[in-house]
Design a protein around this nucleic acid. Structure first.
Lengths: 138, 138
DNA sequence: AACTATATAGGAATTATTCCTATTTGTCAA
DNA sequence: TTGACAAATAGGAATAATTCCTATATAGTT
């Protein structure tokens, strides 16, 4: 799994630093679409003098070279997703939890011609919004 | 079109103020999914002493009572959409332009049982991402 | 081992959003 | 129509999120 990290970094002329390695590993472990701040807090336990800026900058860099993604949100802090395969999201409007799910039906939906003509579509996903079980009870 | 604004405000016990009326009208005119700041700058020309906070707060209130929506984004400032009918978005990864489009195929996609069981789905949309024509040329 | 372009730490600056409070204003009921 | 009162506003301050700046350090190459 670190494979892709080394390969893409090379391809883009990025140096493999201990900080980047740690950030990528931490991100891979994360199942909760964490913010830069959350990742920073987890990592600072291992690398006490790492700066927030490095974590933040690195996550943006990773997103640029396509080894992680910024998750769609609504103006709250950016959240990152280490799963770069096609998948879809359910998002709770109340607590902002994001749940990944897979659906072959969704994956295979055609892009309308109208859009294809005008734009280069790189990514396609379905975003469902509503209430999760916890929030529904209230 | 102001109909829904008056009705929903009543339903939620919100007062009809000149500020709210102006903000709603400005939003209705907007085709560009504007930020609170953009709306503020447009409105301050008509109501010179309106405060940014009022605009911001009002837009959030409108979203809460469902007469406008916050558009999915990636940590940039919140952007608002006066179109509350079901529709879908194409978003340019480079310049962040969001284009609305409609698709009956997308509208009619079923929500997976797996999700239905666990969550109350209120909203469903397809988000396409890629490059718009302008950005593609570079 | 030395060189060089890139990356980092730390802090400052900027941007976006929310909070606080005194004052004003819709709305409702008499 | 008027008074009462809860709700809303303006203005500024505070907080949160992100980005920028710069001196120093380091990965990757020669």
């Amino acid at each position: 799994m670190m494979e892709i990290f080394y390969r893409r970094s090379k391809e883009h002329g990025l140096k493999i630093t201990p900080q980047r390695t740690a950030i990528y590993q931490e991100l891979l472990k994360a199942k909760d679409h964490p913010t830069a701040d959350v990742i920073y807090k987890r990592i600072v336990k291992k690398i006490p003098n790492i700066s927030f800026d490095t974590v933040n900058r690195t996550l943006l860099t990773f997103s640029k070279i396509g080894i992680t993604n910024v998750v769609e949100g609504y103006g709250q802090p950016k959240r990152y997703d280490p799963d770069i395969a096609v998948h879809h999201h359910f998002r709770c409007l109340q607590c902002n939890t994001i749940i990944d799910f897979h659906s072959k039906d969704y994956d295979s939906m055609a892009v309308p011609d109208e859009i294809k003509k005008q734009f280069t579509v790189i990514n396609k996903k379905v975003v469902l919004e509503g209430l999760c079980n916890k929030c529904r009870r209230r």
